[in-house]
């Protein structure tokens, strides 16, 4: 590998060396102060200097906002900066959670929040289940002996790289009133449907779209897991006379389980945060039919005439709690399973 990289750099030719020259100059310039730090503070100082830029940005734009979020959620009023805001205690949380009947969003003070929670819950359950099953099926198909596997893998994978806006626009174009889908329905003798105006269909397409866009990613993880299962085991099972479905349920799936855990975990965490594609596709509509949590936070806190930062922060804290709990459950589950296997 050493050789490869060296060649890669040396083989770049004249043009590359021209590009690299200023870089090299800059790096040599940095060398002086770094050498000073090294002499003055030793390796510890050097390590700190190497860490500093990343941790500085990280602190300002990730860690600090994280703590700030908690503070915001206990304040009210319209001011943007924390020092101008009034402390309101748990009022924002009380507002969010004030419901006469938790099964009926209309009975809640902040009914949009509860609709978003309900929609997100439904979306998470259905989308993750379907996504995992479809990815698993695709991975199993792609794991078979076949020609041009690379091509087929690319077919299922490429939407992963498309931006959510592009994905949404591609499908919005197909689903619009005069779109391809309605033309096909008409051809088959059905009535055209206003896909994105119907509440049920809008949710269906939101789920469909997010599966379409992400299935390649999960398929890839599962496929890597499948290909890591030694061929020997399948042959041993063949010698043992195991029929195909038994090979699947007793050998393949159990051995794939660690990858399944990863996939389910990632899919859950992503699904809770669903926003981009659906927002461009439906804008949360019709009505609140596809309003999800992130959109609620975004709109409540930043996109409305009267920004309600406190309420939005409280909502995002609640969402973060859900995400953390999900992660912990998954981690515990896999740890427990590992322990069981050790025994």
């Amino acid at each position: 590998m050493t050789v490869e990289t060296r060649q890669g750099i040396a083989g770049g030719g004249h043009f590359a060396s021209l590009l690299l020259a200023p870089l090299r100059w800059a790096m040599n310039l940095i060398d002086r102060p770094m050498s000073f730090v090294q002499r003055r503070f030793g390796l510890g100082g050097v390590a700190a200097t190497f860490l500093a830029p990343n941790m500085l940005v990280f602190g300002i734009f990730v860690l600090f906002p994280m703590t700030l979020n908690v503070a915001y959620s206990f304040t009210g009023g319209g001011a943007l900066f924390l020092n101008n805001r009034v402390f309101v205690g748990t009022l924002q949380y009380e507002t969010l959670l004030a419901c006469r009947d938790f099964l009926d969003a209309a009975s809640c003070r902040e009914d949009r929040f509860w609709r978003a929670v309900g929609n997100t819950g439904f979306f998470v359950v259905v989308q993750v289940t379907a996504l995992v099953l479809v990815s698993l099926a695709t991975a199993l198909v792609l794991n078979r002996e076949m020609r041009a596997r690379g091509f087929w893998r690319a077919v299922f994978f490429f939407p992963v790289l498309l931006s959510p806006v592009v994905v949404a626009l591609i499908w919005k174009w197909i689903l619009q009133r005069n779109g391809l889908l309605n033309a096909a329905l008409l051809e088959l003798g059905f009535e055209p449907v206003l896909w994105l105006v119907n509440r049920g269909w809008a949710m269906f397409w939101a789920i469909f779209l997010s599966i379409w866009a992400h299935l390649g990613f999960y398929t890839l993880i599962l496929l890597a897991g499948l290909q890591a299962i030694p061929r020997d085991l399948y042959e041993a099972a063949e010698m043992d006379g195991a029929p195909r479905w038994r090979v699947l349920t007793r050998i393949t799936l159990p051995l794939l389980w660690p990858n399944m855990v990863v996939v389910i975990l990632l899919a859950l965490i992503r699904a809770v945060q669903v926003f981009d594609e659906v927002f461009v596709l439906t804008g949360g509509g019709p009505g609140t039919a596809t309003l999800f949590l992130v959109q609620y936070i975004y709109e409540t806190g930043l996109a409305q005439q009267v920004r309600n930062l406190g309420l939005a922060s409280a909502a995002s804290i609640l969402m973060a709690v859900v995400l953390i709990v999900l992660t912990l459950i998954q981690l515990l589950a896999s740890a427990w399973r590992e322990r069981k296997e050790q025994r």
Partner: peptide, 21 residues
């Protein structure tokens, strides 16, 4: 005839024991 129907048994070089069983 499929492998299972030949009435043979094989011991693999890597043993190929099912690791999860």
């Amino acid at each position: 005839l499929a492998a299972a129907d030949r009435g043979l048994a094989m011991v693999f070089q890597s043993y190929a024991l099912y690791p999860h069983m």
